[in-house]
Amino acid sequence: MNWIYLGVAVIFEIAVALAASKAQGFTRLWWTITTLVSGAIATFFLSLALLTFDVGVGYALWVSVAGIGITILGAMLFGQRLNWRQGAGIGIVIVGVVGLQLGGAA
């Protein structure tokens, strides 16, 4: 169940970043509300996941997977370009996440 909680936390953390980009410095009410509510939900589900994950590992997984999702969705939805260095960086993050999991800390 901890992986489901972490997955939900990641999805809502991605929503935070996407909504925050649309909130334009919190000047657009509904995007601002979406950002804040998504952040609260993401934090809640992260706290549930951290009941079984070590805090360092759980937080690192949350931030890393959400960061990859935000980067990929930014390219897909907002036309942001990815170069080979950024692609390599994503690959390194994935290797690190797999290494954390293989380390048996969760």
Rank of each mutant, 00 (worst) to 15 (best):
Q80W: 07
I94T: 02
S38D: 09
T35N: 12
L36I: 14
V57P: 07
Y5H: 14
L46F: 00
A105P: 05
G39C: 11
V10I: 15
G39T: 07
S47Y: 11
L82S: 12
A9K: 00
N2A: 09
G91I: 06
L77E: 10
I92C: 06
K22L: 08
L18Y: 05
G74R: 04
V97K: 08
G96V: 02
Q86C: 05
L77N: 13
R81N: 08
G25N: 09
G104E: 06
G25K: 11
Q101P: 09
I68F: 00
I92T: 07
L46T: 01
V57M: 13
A42V: 01
L102M: 15
I72H: 05
D54A: 10
V97W: 05
V10T: 05
R85T: 13
F45W: 08
T32Y: 07
L46P: 02
I90Q: 08
I41L: 03
G56F: 04
I68V: 10
L29C: 09
I90M: 06
G56C: 04
S64W: 01
T34H: 04
S38W: 04
W84R: 05
M1P: 14
I11A: 12
F53W: 15
L51W: 00
V8F: 02
Q80N: 09
I11R: 09
G103F: 02
V8I: 15
A19G: 06
